[in-house]
């Protein structure tokens, strides 16, 4: 019962190593082409990638809190795309009467955001308050030999252009309704300009498929758990957590864990205090848990099942200001440091 398949074509036995080298040479050609596109046309990439890259650059090179007077509280809101699309720094500053500097450090698709916090500190932009909306990862991303145990990270390291074909297709498809390739390319470039102007806030328009960027009333997903409180689990060990504590201690940063937002029906109404997170963080005085585990917002304030639309972002930011206002009075800040 030998395995005979269509793969059993003839492979000439002569000069096998020479053929192997030829094959390798041909093999790298498409890779070189994709790498060239990846590097030459950055704005064909999806917004979330550009957002992460731009915020990481600003954290390293300045442009987040560089111009802030040292006496004013500087608030950096960390989290995933939920924070990115939910926190409006300009509104928060306005609500504070200009006494607070705020920046949205929401990084789409990321639970590892202490690299960016470390960059902020190193570049002289240390915030006075780090506001955390969702749990951080328990481990640092793999580096060096550890990459062998993480295929996705290994692919990212060896083939950084692996998403280019996907990006190209999606870009071409999007361009049909965006005035053509050149217009969309310029638009994407402007998204980053807007991101800088809006101090890191970004409305995720691309995932919105409902009229007026608002989910219909009564919107439900099969994965919703309207009878269950969705507690957060914060890792109180591991390299990222230790890094957060070290940065907080060394630079006098107050870490505030605040509620995230969920869609009404996504989870049950939580108790007024996040007892679970409070219990986990009790031994660490530099970290304080404030408010419930989440706020439930009506579907009309969401542009897709997970992210708020601009009206939802205003609502969330306002709630956040009301929650934190006492902690951000200059006297309170001075006392906490």
């Amino acid at each position: 019962m030998n395995h005979r398949t269509a793969f059993d074509g003839t492979v000439p036995a002569s000069q096998p190593w020479g053929r192997f080298v030829k094959f390798l040479a041909l093999f790298v050609l498409p890779g070189l082409f994709l790498a060239w596109i990846h590097n030459s046309f950055p704005y064909i990439r999806p917004g979330y990638e550009l957002v992460v890259e731009e915020k990481s650059r600003l954290a390293r090179e300045g442009g987040i809190f560089a111009a802030a007077p040292a006496a004013r509280p500087r608030l950096a809101v960390f989290g995933s795309s939920v924070a990115l699309s939910g926190f409006v720094p300009r509104l928060f500053e306005e609500l504070s009467g200009g006494t607070v500097d705020a920046y949205n450090m929401g990084l789409p698709g990321s639970i590892l955001y202490f690299d960016q916090l470390e960059s902020l500190v190193k570049s002289g932009q240390a915030p006075t308050h780090v506001v955390v909306t969702n749990p951080w990862g328990g481990d640092d991303p793999p580096r060096g030999l550890a990459l062998v145990w993480n295929d996705a990270a290994l692919r990212d390291a060896l083939v950084p252009f692996h998403d280019t074909p996907r990006d190209l297709v999606l870009f071409a498809l999007r361009s049909r309704t965006a005035g053509g390739l050149a217009a969309l390319y310029d638009d994407t470039r402007h998204v980053l300009t807007a991101l800088r102007e809006d101090k890191g806030f970004h409305f995720i328009k691309s995932q919105s498929h409902y009229p007026n960027d608002a989910l219909p009333e009564g919107f439900r997903l099969p994965s919703d758990k309207p009878d269950e409180v969705l507690w957060r689990t914060f890792h109180a060990s591991g390299a990222p957590f230790e890094r957060l504590r070290r940065l907080a201690r060394e630079h006098g940063i107050k870490v505030l864990i605040v509620p995230r937002y969920l869609r009404r029906g996504e989870g049950a109404e939580p108790p007024a205090e996040d007892t679970e997170a409070t219990r986990q963080m009790q031994p660490y005085p530099e970290i304080e848990v404030v408010g419930p585990a989440y706020w439930l917002l009506p579907p009309a304030l969401f542009s897709d099942p997970t992210h708020t639309n601009p009206a939802g972002a205003r609502e969330y930011t306002t709630r956040l200001w009301n929650l934190l206002r006492d902690r951000l009075q200059p006297a309170a800040v001075a006392a906490s440091r």
Partner: peptide, 14 residues
């Protein structure tokens, strides 16, 4: 070659 690039670019790497 097309298969390898398809795997690298579109494959599920979990």
């Amino acid at each position: 070659i097309a298969q390898v690039y398809a795997l690298l670019c579109f494959g599920v790497f979990r």
